[in-house]
Design a protein around this nucleic acid. Sequence first.
DNA 1: ATCCCGAAAG
DNA 2: CTTTCTGGAT
Length: 223
Amino acid sequence: MARKETDKSRIAPAYKKLLSTFGGQNWWPAETPFEVCVGAMLTQNASWGNVEKALANIRARGALSLAKLHAMPDEELAELIRPSGYFRLKAKRLKHLLAFLADVKGGKWRDFLRSLSLEKARETLLKVHGVGPETADSILLYSADMPSFVVDKYTLRIGGRCGWFPHGTKYEEARAIFMESVAKNVKVYNEFHALIVRLGANFCKTKPLCADCPLNSVCPKKI
DNA sequence: ATCCCGAAAG
DNA sequence: CTTTCTGGAT
C-alpha cells in the first residue's frame, strides 16, 4: 500500500492535546538567563534532579554568576558540578561557554545574541566547543527568548512513534519540521518542548505506557 | 561506534 | 544488576 506513513499535520493537534492534559509547564526552571545557560550545559545526558544538585553546590559557594564561574579553576568547578555527571568534561565545556559570554562587550551577551538573526545566533553558539544543537537551541529559546525549537531524544522517539516524521529522522530535519508545523512563537516552542519531555519521561518511555498515554487517541502507535 | 560519569529507577 | 537521564566530541 502506498499510504502515507508519516504526516507532520499530526503535530499541532498533539500539542493541543498535551497542553490541555498537562497544562503549562512553566519552563525553564531557573532564576536568570545566565542560570539557564549553566543548566543547559549541565543537563547534557543527565537528569534534571542531578543538575539541581550541581546548581545548588554552585549557589552555596556564592558562585552562580558569570564573573565568579569564569574565574574559577576547572578542578574546583568540576567538584561542584560532580552530581550532574561527566563532571571533568562539563567543567571544561562550561568554561568554554563562559569564555564566550564574558567576551561580549559590556556583559550584554543576551542582547548580542538577540541582535543577530536566529540562524546566525545559532551558528555563533554552535562554534562554542561543547555546545551542540540541543544546547544551542535551549539557550536561544529559554535564555534569549528567541524562537528556536528544541529537539531532544524524546522528541525523536515520540515523533517517530506518533508518525510525525519517519523513524531515524535527524535533529536538524526534525527541528525544521516542528518550526513549519506550529506557530513560530517563543511561548509555543517553550511549552511544546517541555510537554514533550514530560510525555517522554512519564509515558512514551523505552517501554511505552500507551494505555494511559494522553496521545493515545491521536497516535498510530508506530512502534 | 566509543568515550565521558554520577545518581536513581527499573 | 542494567538502564536511563531535558548530549556532544572524537
